[in-house]
Design a protein around this nucleic acid. Structure first.
Lengths: 230, 230
DNA sequence: AAGTAAATTAAACAATGTTCAATTTTTATT
DNA sequence: AATAAAAATTGAACATTGTTTAATTTACTT
């Protein structure tokens, strides 16, 4: 009767490990080969199980995708929270948050797509009360409110203002990620992104300090320079 | 040898009609039941043909989806062009274009999704030199340039400014269409949208005239009335 | 060692996009 | 009007997909 607690704990841990491995593999396939390549059989292959086995770890495919969304959201939220405590000055924090958001999207387009663009996981997102983006938005609104109180932003409905800023950053990166910018050549993406960000921020607060979104020390640019000069 | 021109023309016309009918049916299913319901067999059923028959009208399913994108784009572009010639004043035109864009998206979310969010048709969009959005962007940039020249907007890179504005409107409507706004209750969507639009426009041009995006007398309501009268 | 519970498999199912030989329908020629 | 040629359409098949379930293997408890 007194079941061995150790072994049941270990089994639980092993289950959790396989669960994580499934997600690792799914994310890896998604990143390397795109959504249509993410297949139950393909994942099962790579974790060396049978397709049916996955169904004792996840209810269905959508649940796997949703788990990837949760993962990505925690990553992004951690980033926001670190800025929250590192930058007490609200205006500075607002800027930094905007830049960080865009940088995250450009450097992790697949994760961004999962969280904010894809339609695949929205069923599960509606079912579960998934409040990661909810808390992120509250953080942004709080920052906006502080900026307004301290005179850095024109006073207005904080919900509307926060939504406006979020809309801009989301709009710009999602147009790029989903390649809806035929009018702009791809090599100018970084510049236009930077220019648009500065244009809007300048309009809202004329006295800001412009800072690069994608810094010169970022991997991409460095790589290009090296190739170009040689 | 001298083939009957009349009959070949008629056959051509009949082919074109079926092509259009296929697209009508596909769009109708997409609108009513969502993307996963749009199936070759389902379309074939509704046009009373066999699944294989559709393949002599479209190369593959993606080509059908892409044709829907083309249709929607023509509709939106016609809207932009009508504003272009109706409103010579650039600032007025800029405002009206922004509002029209948002209204179009909120009233035709499926069409908007096809054009600017979905990943399904992007392969074909890249292959064909599909320049509808390209010309729309040029129109916007021209308007922005005129606004700058006449002092309604701060002088800056027109590409960046136009992109900034497009990013904002796209971002706001696509967050709503893809239901990524857990933080905001659905019944407040219209208000927040309006508030955000005004906040941003106010910031860029302090002396503007606020106008509703979704008016109480919007086409939706009118259309319903008309149908009712008949 | 035996028995029980959990995990895993193997095989099947229905539905998907797509292809292609066979057949029907339409058009052109005699 | 009959027949040959061409075009359009079908019907049946394929390979894949997500998912289910009875059977089997594995792990654990007694």
């Amino acid at each position: 009767m007194a079941k061995n607690l150790k072994s049941i704990q270990r089994r639980e841990r092993e289950r959790e490990e396989l669960r994580e491995q499934i997600l690792d593999v799914a994310m890896s396939i998604l990143t390397k080969e795109g959504y249509e390549a993410v297949t139950i059989r393909r994942i099962a292959d790579e974790v060396e199980y049978t397709p049916g086995a996955l169904y004792s770890y996840f209810g269905d495919k959508e649940e796997i995708i949703f788990a990837l969304v949760v993962r990505a959201s925690k990553k992004l939220n951690a980033l926001f929270l670190s800025l929250e405590e590192a930058l007490p000055h609200p205006l500075e924090r607002l800027w930094a948050t905007g830049r960080a958001y865009m940088r995250f999207a450009m450097e992790h387009p697949v994760e961004y797509d999962l969280m904010f663009i894809m339609s695949a996981p929205i069923q599960k997102m509606a079912e579960c009360d998934f409040n990661e983006t909810h808390t992120a938005f509250r953080l942004l609104r709080k920052t906006v409110e502080e900026c307004m109180k301290q005179g850095f932003l024109p006073r207005a409905d904080a919900d509307a203002a926060a939504f406006a800023m979020w809309s801009f950053v989301h709009g710009s990166v999602s147009l790029m990620i989903r390649k809806r910018l035929a009018a702009i050549p791809e090599e100018k993406y970084d510049d236009v992104l930077q220019g648009a960000f500065n244009f809007l921020m300048n309009a809202m607060m004329p006295r800001h300090q412009e800072q690069p979104i994608i810094t010169p020390s970022a991997p991409k640019v460095l790589a290009k320079k090296k190739i170009g000069k040689k």
